[in-house]
């Protein structure tokens, strides 16, 4: 069974249809990319999936359970991790503390007033940071990290509650090209090892075609393609959206 199943998702903002009739599934252990031009509705789709926005219509199922309309934190507890397009880390904490905070939340221990965070789940946090190659920077403030490193911390945070589904909104934006491939390989490896489904948006087409098992293409709120990288690459409608392909350039 697919980890995530989305049926007829719709959302409009002040009369502008941001998403309409979007349906797709994501399978366990697979990397699924969602691509499309700016304003196609990718981030809106993510915000609907993790409960930050209320959807107008449609259903979202996580491993068969209907999670439509639940608040973000409930959806997280059910096993949906997320990284943000504009990296969301806690800037006033160290790298390790960011991950520790997630671990504390996962274990429902954030209401405690007495124990020192410094002593809690530290090894586990360092272990996660080692997986994303950030262990050496564990004591640095998240507020001063290079952008690519912030993205890696976000990934460690998203992995901390062992999600069944990981949503990654432009995980490599702002990273150097070499770093991008390394990060995506890392995520792909983790997805397979943990049987975790990954849905990601990405502008770097090299990264998309190198790592996605399946690709969804959105344009103006509608799903115009859903298939393997090879299928998507040869799809005429996709080529029409991603101008620069020969067909349209000549037609223009």
């Amino acid at each position: 069974m697919s980890v995530l199943a989305v049926r007829d998702l719709a959302k409009s903002f002040g009369g502008v249809q941001a998403l309409a009739g979007v349906s797709f599934e994501v399978a366990a252990g697979k990397m699924q990319a969602m691509i499309g031009p700016n304003g196609a509705g990718k981030t809106t789709c993510f915000n609907l999936l993790d409960g930050q926005l209320r959807l107008d219509a449609g259903r979202v199922y996580l491993a068969g359970t209907d999670i439509t309309g639940l608040p973000t934190r409930r959806i997280w507890r059910l096993g949906v991790g997320r990284t943000f397009q504009i990296a969301g880390v806690f800037a006033s904490m160290t790298v390790a503390e960011n991950v520790q905070t997630v671990l504390l939340s996962h274990r429902r221990r954030l209401a405690a007033f007495w124990p020192r965070v410094a002593d809690l789940y530290r090894d586990e946090a360092l272990d996660l940071l080692a997986q994303v190659g950030m262990a050496e920077q564990a004591e640095r403030s998240c507020g001063v990290l290079a952008y690519g490193d912030v993205k890696r911390v976000e990934l460690a945070m998203a992995l901390a509650h062992s999600p069944r589904l990981l949503l990654m909104d432009e995980p490599t934006a702002g990273m150097a090209p070499g770093e991008r491939m390394a990060l995506m390989s890392l995520v792909a490896g983790l997805a397979r090892a943990r049987e975790m489904a990954v849905l990601f948006t990405e502008h770097d087409m090299d990264a998309v075609f190198a790592h996605a098992d399946r690709i969804l293409v959105l344009d103006r709120g509608r799903l115009i393609a859903d298939g393997s990288p090879a299928e998507v690459r040869t799809d005429a409608r996709v080529r029409a959206v991603y101008l620069g392909s020969d067909a349209v350039a000549e037609a223009g």
């Binding site: 993790d50 930050q52 608040p71 973000t72 934190r73 997280w76 507890r77 997320r82 943000f84 969301g88 880390v89 806690f90 800037a91 006033s92 904490m93 503390e97 520790q100 905070t101 997630v102 504390l104 939340s105 996962h106 954030l110 209401a111 965070v117 945070m157 901390a160 509650h161």
Partner: peptide, 18 residues
């Protein structure tokens, strides 16, 4: 830490169950 998480990045905090 939960309090600071909510201050630093409220959306992120909600997205980790706070």
């Amino acid at each position: 830490y939960a309090l600071r998480a909510g201050r630093d990045a409220p959306l992120r905090a909600e997205a980790i169950g706070i």
